Amino acid sequence: MASSNPQPLTQELLARAHSPDSAARIYSDKIQHRPLYLRPNSPPPAANARAARRKTRDEKNRKRKSQKPKPLSASQRRKLGLYDVPKDGRRYAVFEPLKKLWIGYMREVLGSHLYTGGPTCAAKLCAAEYHGAEVEVTRSGCPSRVGLKGIVIKDSKFAFEIITRKNELKLIPKEGTMFRLYIPAPVQDATDTATTTPTDKNDESNNGFSFEILGDQFQYRSADRANRKFKAHYLEKI
């Protein structure tokens, strides 16, 4: 017959390792009146699980953003010299292949308008890219700039940076300046009707396309100018 007051299991386990007095003391001091917290083994409700997953995801995103370095500002880029052309690269011959690429690009952009011109041609010229173009200053508020000619290596919002044939780097403001550009016509081979690559001559006797742009109307970044619609209106001459 079982005892009416059975000994707790914890006391039996303590009696195996300690003397009866020590077991009774340990049980009364550390076990008898201490609550035992049990973690439920069932999963939490779906709403709590979704909130926990969202919280974990947000913490990971915040940690990832904090570890990602901030981009450099424009002033920091200028201070580091990221916009500067290295001195060993300031040679006209280095940018001549870029000039040939630009001529081919403009021939594709203009198409048949290379020979006819017109309003459609003007709209395409306004939105075109001018890195690699060879420009010449025909009119300017500063007389010393007239006659400067070189390949555009940097088309910023307010100025053209060009490299001349004398390997000189010039910064020409767009404001108050008229630039002249020339696109040679494709050279026809005598034995074939297909066009060949353009000659590298600077003469304009092969019925090429010559035009002028007013720098005041080109005071936009090239990326912004590509999506901008220009309207024809009267402009005062310089």
Rank of each mutant, 00 (worst) to 15 (best):
A2V: 11
S3V: 02
S3Q: 07
N5D: 05
N5E: 11
N5A: 13
P6N: 08
P6R: 13
P6V: 06
Q7C: 08
L9H: 03
Q11I: 14
E12L: 10
L14F: 05
R16M: 10
A17I: 08
P20L: 08
P20V: 09
R25H: 11
I26A: 10
I26W: 07
Y27L: 07
D29Q: 11
H33Y: 10
H33D: 08
L36F: 15
L36R: 09
L36M: 11
P40V: 05
P44H: 05
P44R: 12
P45H: 08
P45S: 07
A47E: 15
N48C: 05
K55R: 15
R57W: 11
R57N: 12
K63W: 06
R64F: 10
K68W: 07
K68F: 10
K68E: 14
K68R: 15
K70E: 14
L72Q: 15
L72R: 12
S73N: 07
A74Q: 13
S75N: 13
Q76Y: 02
Y83T: 10
D88H: 15
K99A: 13
K100F: 09
K100M: 12
W102M: 03
I103G: 02
G104V: 01
G104Q: 12
Y105T: 03
Y105C: 01
Y105P: 01
R107E: 13
R107V: 09
G111M: 06
S112Q: 10
H113D: 08
L114S: 03
L114Y: 06
Y115F: 12
T116W: 04
T116Y: 06
G117I: 08
T120I: 11
A122I: 02
A122P: 00
A123I: 08
L125M: 03
C126E: 00
A127T: 14
A128I: 02
E129A: 08
H131M: 08
G132L: 04
V135A: 06
V137A: 02
R139N: 07
S144G: 07
R145G: 09
L148T: 04
L148W: 03
K149S: 10
K154V: 03
F158S: 09
F160S: 02
E161Y: 00
E161H: 01
N167M: 06
L169E: 03
K170P: 00
K170M: 11
E175S: 03
T177Q: 00
M178G: 00
M178W: 08
F179C: 00
F179P: 01
R180T: 09
L181D: 00
L181F: 04
L181M: 15
A190G: 04
T191G: 10
A194I: 08
A194Y: 06
T197D: 13
D200K: 02
N202T: 15
N207R: 10
G208F: 07
F209E: 00
S210E: 15
S210D: 14
S210T: 15
F211N: 04
E212G: 02
I213Q: 00
Q217V: 06
Q217Y: 13
Q217S: 15
Y220V: 01
R221Y: 06
R221V: 05
R221E: 09
D224A: 10
R225F: 05
A226R: 10
N227S: 14
R228N: 11
K229I: 10
F230N: 00
H233T: 12
Y234R: 04
